[in-house]
Design a protein around this nucleic acid. Structure first.
Lengths: 243, 243
DNA sequence: ATTTGACACTTGTCTATACAAGTAATATAA
DNA sequence: TTATATTACTTGTATAGACAAGTGTCAAAT
């Protein structure tokens, strides 16, 4: 049973996307929505908080909740996303080629900082292409204890759906860094780089719901195909929640 | 008067940063914290929700709130930040050189999408250096109606503190895109690029609390000095809040 | 020894109520 | 006409209470 406030958030999200509530206009007020959905005002507010953090609305004290126009900003990569999910949203012909698949250990750069009991891992390197153009190389190090039976066939599809749907692993958060670095010859060749030897490197440390470290991913993007879209809210200054 | 839950969040944040609550350990339970701060449990929960969205803790149903280890991830640029703020956090010698300062109009690429009544704007181009190394060129287009009296002296310092402290403008959110693009000769020279002609381009559209568009910024980063750090939470799948 | 169940904790959701504070339009007083 | 209250909305904060659901422990039954 999903929570009421999530159902309401989902419903409002759909109505916004289908233009039932239009950008620039106000949503019905909290008491009205509460009446509509037959819930308390606090529950309505929780639903609106979801839309707020998703960047779909902006709440204005004394006025109401304005629907923001985010249609232009296609996909917020600040979420943890999958190549596959991205593939469904945009309608493109995406393929995956496995370059490597083997047992290995977590890189020491990771184990040094994270005290991991058993660094035994599976290494998967995949080349992703869209419309026959190479776009990105994904290098995944996955702790073996979580995926002892991972096969090359599953890696061919989506790792995330295998983790979540098949294994029931609950992925919860990740820390990411984006940098620009020179690539070695193999990568230059795989990505068919021409005028440059630079690639965009996205490094992700992925954690499960119980805060245990799970996966380290290095993504090497062709710079001319890379785009990162973000929606950032300015945090409350007075509260000093900023890090 | 700041809200109680923000004060509590601030206090907990400090205690975590000063090691009073240590990474990997559990915070006191919600009822205990409520007792401690003499507030209701809902208020405590609001404070914890702040820490949660800041990536400082992870809540586990049935167990408690674990303090996450984020010391390694120095600054999350997913927030809206200033060169100056960044400068204070890291302790570095930062300088700003004004390259251009003039009246202009918002670029049509912006006005095309945003229906702006008066595109009259001020253009400020600044070269930021750290330890005498050029790092980034900031090109700001600010709607003139908000800053009719902006001077070159203020631009020399921090635009943000001028906006917020002096003018009382409340900046609230921004949409950002990060791409990698070829630079023209002027930029190459200003940033002292050598082996490459690529720069990292961060484009930001900044909005005020009342959702009015305010400022367009193009930041051109030297690729070898660029680093973007992000903390991403996986959104609830069932609720389909994902865009 | 192993399983089962009860129990005491934890966080998650939801309600009903109250008051504070910002916004906007309208009526009132100068 | 112009300012000033009044009023009726809006969202923001905070409380107290209730029950659901996940976790871990420990005792009792198998």
């Amino acid at each position: 049973m999903t929570a009421k406030y999530l159902q309401i958030a989902a419903d409002l999200t759909n109505k916004i996307k289908h233009g039932q509530y239009k950008a620039g206009k106000l949503l019905p007020s909290e008491p009205v929505l509460s009446e509509l959905y037959r819930v308390s005002r606090e529950t309505t507010r929780k639903a609106l908080a979801e839309l707020m953090s998703a960047g779909l609305i902006q709440k204005l004290k004394g006025k109401g909740s304005i629907v923001l126009d985010r249609t232009r900003f296609a996909f917020p990569v600040s979420n943890i996303e999958t190549f596959d999910e991205l593939n469904k949203q945009e309608q493109m012909h995406a393929t995956t080629e496995i370059l490597h698949f083997s047992d290995t250990k977590m890189p020491s750069s990771i184990t040094d900082q994270l005290d991991i009991t058993d660094p035994t891992a599976i290494f998967v390197e995949r080349l992703r292409s869209i419309n026959h153009e190479p776009i990105v190389i994904d290098q995944d190090y996955i702790l073996k204890k979580y995926v002892p039976h991972l096969t090359i066939e599953q890696a061919q599809k989506s790792l995330y759906s295998y983790f979540e749907r098949d294994l029931g692993l609950e992925i919860d958060y990740a820390t990411k860094t984006i940098t620009v670095e020179p690539a070695d010859k193999k990568v230059i060749q795989s990505l068919q780089l021409e005028d440059t030897n630079l690639v965009v490197v996205v490094r992700s440390l992925t954690y499960l719901k119980d805060t245990s470290f799970f996966q380290y991913t290095v993504s090497l993007h062709r710079p001319d195909k890379f785009k990162f879209v973000d929606f950032a809210r300015r945090k409350a200054q007075h509260g000093r929640i900023i890090l």
